[in-house]
Design a binder for these strands. Structure first.
Lengths: 114, 114
DNA sequence: TAATTATATAATGATTTGCTTATATGAACA
DNA sequence: TGTTCATATAAGCAAATCATTATATAATTA
């Protein structure tokens, strides 16, 4: 029997995390691309600890996965999360954020770092 | 031309409001029923000012409408809000909350008040 | 093995949030 | 017209949030 609905506690916790512009943009990006911390630092023009803390919240809820590749740690959407369909539905309504990654590529920042 | 996506600022602001269990439940209820403040006070077992403040936030973003009916002020979903489809999509994933209103009816609280 | 790079965690502080109590407003009714 | 009822607003406070700086950890490279 498939899970049609989410408990209210779970739903509000997820929405709370997505209710921050930085995290919401991260999630939109992660839905299509794996990213590492240094890329987010570049994109959001903020400190590395700040990014790490946003990531931790998303990871604590299991929404994203972590994978070390050598020196770097890559994050990706956890598409097998119980409530990924819910998250995906939300992300679908948001404008594509790929321009942010394209900027990095143009700067060479993407390649340099990861 | 229909608006397919929401600006990130707008989306995160909406999600932030929905990221609170009380407001999320209110919205789920309001999607099907008009309610007045006193009903919410009963349902959420909290103070009237607390409910009023949650309502104000939802109203400030234009997500709900206010209508005075004599002594009472009724709130309802603003279904013509630019981003109502987005909100509705989210609410669709949540469990029905009608039992909360049914309880009020059984207590007589719903009828008494409104 | 020492220095560097990428990231996480800890500690701190300013801001925001969400509640509470107290008070104001506005309609209804006796 | 004064009292009551429903709601809003104001003020105050504790807890949560989000950034920052400082430090720790773990892999890489010289």
């Amino acid at each position: 029997m498939s899970k049609a609905t989410i408990e209210m506690d779970k739903a509000s916790a997820i929405l709370k995390l997505l209710g921050d512009k930085t995290r919401l943009t991260m999630m939109k990006l992660l839905d299509k691309h794996d990213c590492c911390v240094c890329e987010f630092v570049e994109i959001f023009k903020t400190s590395q600890p700040s990014i790490s803390q946003h990531i931790r919240k998303l990871r604590d809820l299991g929404l994203i996965k972590e994978e070390r590749r050598g020196q770097w740690i890559f994050y990706s959407m956890n598409k097998s999360h119980e409530h990924y369909p819910f998250v995906q539905e939300i992300l679908k309504h948001l404008p594509n954020q790929d321009d942010k990654l394209r900027e990095l590529e143009e700067q060479g920042t993407r390649i340099t770092c990861c």
